[in-house]
Each structure stands twice: as C-alpha cells, then as structure tokens.
Write a protein that binds this DNA or RNA. Structure first.
Length: 416
DNA sequence: AGTTTAGTGTGGACCACAACTCGTT
DNA sequence: GAAACGAGTTGTGGTCCACACTAAA
C-alpha cells in the first residue's frame, strides 16, 4: 500500500496529498495539482519512506529517510541510540513547483537512497524551470527572478542555489546547525544593492548584512515573526493575532487566493528587505476570497507584504505605501508555493529579546495553533466531492436520479 | 442632518445519496 | 476477537434567499 502512485498506479509514489488522501508520484502530483485553482492549493509533503502511507513530517539525517510521526516515534522514540539522530522538519508545499524548486525545498530529494532511480526522479530532472517560470501558475516567477543588474539574481543563480541544496530561503527543511552557506556570495552581492530588512522591534545590527543571517531563513520564522508581532514590530498583539486569525501568513504570502482589486497588498512600508532566496519564495499571491477578506479586514493594520517591481524587491510591513497592485497578483495562480518550515525571519541576534528557547516555544505555539485552525474549507472525502461534482441539480439542489434537472455538471445541459 | 431607497456582499439552508460510523449479532 | 450486518449520520456543491451594510437620492 502506498508504494505506487494512487493516480497512475505505475510510478512509485513520492508525495502525499492530504486533501486527496493520495500518494502520488511527482509527475502525477504535478498533473493533478495543476488542474485547477483549488487543487493547486492542496498541501503536499513527502511520503513516509517507512510505512509508505503517511505524510512524512521529519527527515532523519543519519538514516537519510523521511518519516511520518508514527514511524519517527517508533524509530527514534524508543531506541536510545536512534533518539539522538539529527532530524529535520519536513513541511508541505502547494502549487506546482518545478523540479528545481522542489529540489530546493527538499535538498535531499534527489539522493533518496531507495528512490533515486525512479522514473519520477528522472522526470523531475527533466522538468525545466523555464517551462515553469513561463507557464505554470506558481506565482509570478517571471517577476521574481531575473532581476535587474542591481537585483543581481538570475535564473541561473537560482538554479545553482537550488542545486546546492542550501537555499534556506525557500527550503522547508530546517537545518539550522552548520550547513555551509553557499548562498553567501550571492546574497552578499545582492544585498549590497538591495534594501536591508530591518525588524523595528528588535535591535538586529545591520540586519541581513551578514549572509550568515540567511542561514536559517525560511517561512516558519516568518510565521513566528508574526506570532510575535508585538515584540518584533512594536504593534499591538491584537493586530497580529487578528491577522493570524484571518488567515495570517497564508494569505499574506499567497498560499491562498486573493481575488479582485481588493487583494492588493494594501501598502507596505516599515521594513523593506530582500533576499535572494526569499525573492523566490515569498510570493505575493493570488486570488482567494478568504484571503482577500483577511487582507481587507486588516488593511489598516500591519501587513507584511512582498512586492516586486521592475527588478526591485521589497518585503514590507504595515499598511501605507502601496507598491503593488491587484494586477500583480492576478497572474499568480491560485496558489503560490507554500513553504512551511522554521522561519528565520528575524534571526536571533545577541540583543534580541528572542532567546532561542522562546523562539522555539513560539514556533511550537504557532504550529499548534495553526494545526487546530481551519483556514479554509477542506474536502475531507474526495469521493464525495467527486460525486457532488457530477450530480444533477435543480436550482442548486441535488435531485433524485432520473428526476428532471436544470443543471448537469457533466453536460451543462438541462432536461427541461 | 435624518430618512428612504437601491445596490452589494455574506452566510446559511436546501437537496440526494454514497460513504462513513457505530452498535449489535 | 473477528466478521457481518443494519441503522443512523455525515459531507459534498450550486443556487436561493434573508439579512446586514453602504452609498446615493
């Protein structure tokens, strides 16, 4: 069970989609989840390599295996030797990431000991980033890469970063310890001409000037920074709480749609920043009413927004300076890739009130909170949805089989 | 400034029935 | 304890409608 793709039944499954409760190979994952705006929002993660039926939550660096919670507990919770294994959090993504992008999320994905030879991987390698940047709906990729000279980030650079597997800006793998930061050169060069990120609530000296600070940079710390908005930005916690209540980081970063003219990031100032990794990761996004709501309802409140205009990137907070418009987002597709991991948004610095313990506590709290909250309608039973999708109706209501209908989803015809 | 009207947005109810849950045998 | 069975419950999407809110007259 779970060894082969639930969709094609041929390839070995690699990722797990909770929404569909399905294990898929990479190509089917891509096919299935590029079908429509809703499917693009499905959150997927790697499949547990032990039980092959559950979504993996961690990766054991020692065993080089991705494990679900149960298998992780079984393997590491009991054995004293194994319990010391270094483990990385594996988080989910949505949208239609390309091969490069996937490999940047899961830097280890290409050297799975047991799966490296599958067709999926071959296909993975064949999927070109050009194809995706031009055609897929994974956010405004064409806008976020290939910057001007000042931006100094080109697609090639990005690919190199991806290859290096230490693109922590987007990787959801949290390995904060001591991965050599190949990003240094790129970030340094980029940072010399790009605005610096600054966290008003903290006293980070020359933030992000030191490329080491990028080391731990990914989305969950972004979450964290919002969770601790007050400390970080000196605004009332209510605002950030409400922001989170209303969809929080998901809406801000386009993991949900934002439709219509109201979806523009209502302004942004305060802190501007950019990072090579982040440029490709934090994508403004797309068009979801819920998200629009959240944005709307908080439009006078601090809003964190990433904007990209003519090669200039800026990551912004608050709600004043409009650097982006709805048009910027409308092409983002339903879902930019959502990367959840440990977010090094505001990296720890000596003066920061954030001790690492507090940080991890805050991350835990936020993750717990996020887990228990339903930000959007989730289809629990795909089979029921499939049925409902094809059922005939009268004025939107289901009708008995054989009865007259005025709407047939399959044929769009009427029986009377 | 206060009242009325028109327009817009939102959320809940409704429908049939396969899938699911749970208790009983 | 496991399996089979039956009864009750749940969840699915498009449409309608009541209600709340806003802007204009």
């Amino acid at each position: 069970m779970g060894y082969v793709c639930d969709f094609c039944g041929e390839q070995r499954s690699m990722v797990y989609c909770r929404s569909d409760a399905a294990s898929l190979c990479l190509s089917c994952d891509r096919n299935v989840h590029s079908a429509n705006a809703l499917s693009k929002r499905h959150s997927r993660t790697l499949l547990c390599e032990r039980c092959n039926s559950q979504p993996a939550g961690v990766r054991c660096a020692e065993e080089r295996i991705s494990l679900c919670q149960n298998c992780d507990w079984a393997g590491h919770g009991t054995s004293t030797s194994a319990s010391t294994h270094r483990r990385q959090t594996i988080n989910s993504y949505s949208g239609c990431p390309s091969a490069s992008e996937l490999s940047s999320i899961w830097s280890f994905v290409l050297d799975f000991p047991s799966r490296g030879e599958s067709t999926c991987e071959q296909e993975l390698g064949l999927m070109s980033i050009a194809e995706n940047s031009a055609t897929n709906s994974w956010g405004p990729t064409e806008n976020t890469i290939g910057q001007s000279a000042s931006g100094a980030v080109e697609v090639n650079d990005r690919r190199e970063i991806a290859k290096s597997g230490v693109w922590h800006g987007s990787s959801s793998i949290h390995e904060s310890s001591s991965v050599p930061n190949n990003l240094d050169q790129t970030t340094r060069s980029a940072n010399t001409s790009l605005p610096k990120l600054c966290c008003p609530g903290t006293k980070c000296p020359a933030p992000y000037e030191d490329a080491d600070l990028y080391e731990d940079f990914n989305m969950d710390e972004m979450d964290l920074s919002l969770e601790n908005y007050e400390e970080l930005f000196g605004v009332t916690l209510n605002n950030s709480e409400e922001l989170l209540e209303n969809g929080g980081i998901d809406s801000l970063f386009g993991t949900r749609d934002m439709s219509g003219a109201d979806s523009n990031c209502q302004g942004a100032v305060a802190a501007e920043g950019s990072s090579v990794g982040l440029v490709n990761t934090v994508q403004p996004a797309s068009s979801n009413a819920a998200s629009a709501d959240s944005t709307m309802s908080n439009k006078t409140e601090p809003i964190l927004c990433f904007t990209e205009k003519q090669g200039h990137s800026s990551l912004s907070f608050s709600g004043l300076n409009v650097e982006s418009s709805a048009a910027d987002y409308q092409d983002c597709g339903a879902s930019s890739m959502l990367l959840m991991g440990e977010p090094p948004w505001c990296p720890p610095c000596p003066e920061s009130p954030f001790s690492s313990a507090n940080r991890s506590d805050a991350v835990m709290r936020y993750k717990e909170k996020k887990k228990t909250r339903m930000f959007e309608k989730k289809v629990r039973y795909a089979s029921r949805k499939a049925r409902a999708d094809v059922r005939r109706r009268v004025k939107g209501r289901f009708v008995k089989a054989g009865d007259a209908y005025d709407y047939d989803p399959l044929s769009q015809t009427r029986s009377f």
